[in-house]
């Protein structure tokens, strides 16, 4: 395979894996949110915010995918010459956000569902409840940073 294929695979992996994780996480949290709102619609805004937390990994993956596509010229319409070594480097650079995004979004989804349980019983503890799933975000942000630094730092 030529370098451009590996680079595109990297962009796809970043978007697909983190998107899958976010879809699962937001889905699980959404089920919990629906359960609470079916009994107490007044908690809609609070549970919606918590439900959205696992969605960020998908955005991070999209961001890295955009950076990669931009770097190899796919977005501008002029595809750059990418050697096999560079293509592989770009592919590996995209993996952190893809893999960590997938895993962290799944775990953030289950943590968010548990946090929604706190809001259901003690809505005044919303701030604390939000912190638990937010902690999982740390590792997605770290992976995002690594991917961005790596993708932008690879010489063409």
């Amino acid at each position: 395979m030529s370098g451009i294929v590996w680079a595109l695979l990297g962009a796809a992996a970043a978007a697909i894996l983190s998107g899958m994780g976010s879809a699962y996480g937001v889905g699980v949290a959404g089920q919990a949110a629906s359960g609470v709102v079916s009994e107490d619609p007044s908690k809609f805004a609070k549970v919606l915010i918590i439900q959205l937390l696992p969605g960020t990994q998908g955005i991070y993956g999209l961001l890295v995918a955009f950076l990669t596509l931009s770097k190899i010229g796919v977005l501008g319409g002029q595809i750059a010459e990418v050697s096999l070594a560079t293509g592989l480097l770009i592919f590996v650079a995209c993996l952190p956000i893809g893999v960590v995004g997938l895993i962290s979004a799944r775990h953030q989804g289950t943590t968010a569902a548990a946090a929604i349980g706190i809001v259901a019983k003690k809505p005044e503890q919303f701030g604390k409840a939000m912190l638990f799933p937010a902690m999982v975000e740390t590792y997605a942000i770290l992976a995002l940073l690594v991917s961005i630094l790596a993708v932008t730092g690879i010489p063409m």
């Binding site: 089920q31 359960g35 609470v36 079916s38 009994e39 908690k43 259901a120 019983k121």
Partner: peptide, 17 residues
């Protein structure tokens, strides 16, 4: 276990009463 996510959250809301 995850299939009960909706039900457990609803139960949490009901436990208040």
């Amino acid at each position: 276990d995850k299939d009960y996510t909706y039900a457990v959250a609803r139960i949490r809301a009901l436990e208040v009463s």
